[in-house]
C-alpha cells in the first residue's frame, strides 16, 4: 500500500521523472471553431425559445402602429416643416429598428445570468475553449437575431406604407447600422449581468434606460421641434446617432442635426459621423464588458 506522499520536498525534486504529461488525442481548438460552436448553441436556444424573439419584437411593433395612427397626422407637419412629403411611417421605421436593437440586446445579459444560475457557465469555464471566443460566439448569435428582427420591422414598415428611398441596399445598410448600434447595448446588458448576477436586476437596469434614451433623441420627432434641453441631451444620446444613421439611409438625406458635418456628400455627412460615434461607443462598452467578464472568469479566489 502506498504511503501517503504528503511531503512537498519529494514531490518537488522528483517531478521530472514521476509525472508524465498527459495529453488527450484531440483536434486542436481554433478560435473560430470555438466561436462557431457557441454561436450554434445560442442560435439553437433562440429558436427553441421563440418567446424571447417575439417579446422583444412586440413592444416596438406596438409603438410603430400606435405612433403612426395616433401621432401620424400631427407629426407629419413637424417632419415636413413647410416643404417635403415624408410620411410619418417612413420617418418612424428607422427609430423602431433601433428600438428593436435596444430591446433585443437586453436579453444578452439575461442569457449570461441564466448560464451562471444553471451552472452551465462553470462547466464552460473548465472546457479548453478560448473565453473570448465563447462570448464572441454568443454575441454573434444575438446580433444575428437582432438583424433578423430589424428585417422583420422593415418589412412590416413597408407593408404599412413606409418607403426606403435607397432600396434594398439601403435596407441592408439599415440592418448594419442596427448591428453596430446593438453592440454597445449588448455589452451594457452583459456588464449589468456580471455585476448583478441577477436576472431581474439585469432586465430592470437595461429597460430603465430604454424609454429615456428613445424619447430624448431624434427617434420620434425631429429635434428642431423639441425643447432646447432635449436637443442638448440628444447630442449625447447614442440613440440619436443610431436613428440618424438609419434614417439617412431610409430617406436618402443628410438628416443629422446634432453635428454639423459637411465634409462629405449627401447622406455620408450623416452616416460617417454616426457610424464613427457608434464604433467608439462599441469599443468603450465592449472593452468594459470584456474586462469585467475576464475578471469574472479568471480563477482568482473571489
Amino acid at each position: 500500500m502506498s504511503t501517503p506522499t504528503e511531503t512537498a520536498e519529494t514531490a518537488e525534486t522528483e517531478r521530472g521523472e514521476r509525472t508524465t504529461e498527459r495529453e488527450v488525442r484531440r483536434s486542436s481548438n481554433s478560435f473560430l471553431g470555438d466561436v462557431w460552436v457557441n454561436f450554434k448553441r445560442w442560435n439553437i436556444k433562440a429558436v427553441r425559445n421563440p418567446f424571447v424573439l417575439v417579446t422583444s419584437l412586440v413592444q416596438p411593433i406596438i409603438f410603430l402602429i400606435l405612433f403612426t395612427q395616433v401621432f401620424g397626422a400631427v407629426a407629419t407637419n413637424a417632419i415636413n416643416a413647410g416643404a417635403g412629403s415624408i410620411s410619418y411611417e417612413t420617418f418612424l421605421v428607422p427609430a423602431i429598428a433601433i428600438q428593436v436593437a435596444l430591446a433585443a440586446a437586453v436579453t444578452s445579459g439575461v442569457g449570461l445570468v441564466n448560464d451562471i444560475e444553471e451552472d452551465v457557465f462553470e462547466k464552460i469555464l473548465v472546457m479548453p475553449m478560448n473565453r473570448g471566443a465563447v462570448f464572441a460566439g454568443k454575441s454573434a448569435a444575438e446580433i444575428l437575431r437582432i438583424v433578423v428582427q430589424i428585417a422583420i420591422i422593415l418589412g412590416l414598415g413597408v407593408l404599412l406604407g413606409a418607403e426606403i428611398a435607397t432600396g434594398i441596399l439601403g435596407a441592408i445598410g439599415i440592418m448594419l447600422v442596427g448591428l453596430l448600434f446593438s453592440i454597445w447595448f449588448l455589452a451594457y446588458s452583459n456588464i449589468l449581468a456580471v455585476l448583478t448576477k441577477d436576472q431581474e436586476s439585469t432586465i430592470i437596469g437595461a429597460n430603465l434606460l430604454q424609454f429615456p434614451l428613445l424619447f430624448l433623441s431624434s427617434a420620434f420627432l425631429p429635434l428642431g421641434s423639441l425643447p432646447n434641453w432635449i436637443r442638448v441631451v440628444a447630442a449625447f444620446n447614442p440613440v440619436t446617432y443610431g436613428v440618424d444613421g438609419a434614417r439617412a439611409l431610409m430617406l436618402d438625406q443628410d438628416v443629422m442635426t446634432v453635428l454639423d458635418v459637411t465634409a462629405f456628400t449627401g447622406i455620408w455627412n450623416t452616416l460617417v459621423p454616426a457610424l464613427l460615434v457608434l464604433a467608439v461607443l462599441d469599443l468603450a462598452f465592449g472593452g468594459i464588458a470584456v474586462f469585467l467578464l475576464t475578471r469574472a472568469t479568471s480563477s482568482d479566489a473571489k
Binding site: 483536434s27 471553431g33 462557431w36 460552436v37 448553441r41 472546457m127 479548453p128
Partner: peptide, 10 residues
C-alpha cells in the same frame, strides 16, 4: 457541444 468544445476529432 462538449465534443466540439473538447476537440474530439470530427
Amino acid at each position: 457541444f462538449a465534443c466540439t468544445a473538447y476537440g474530439v476529432p470530427r
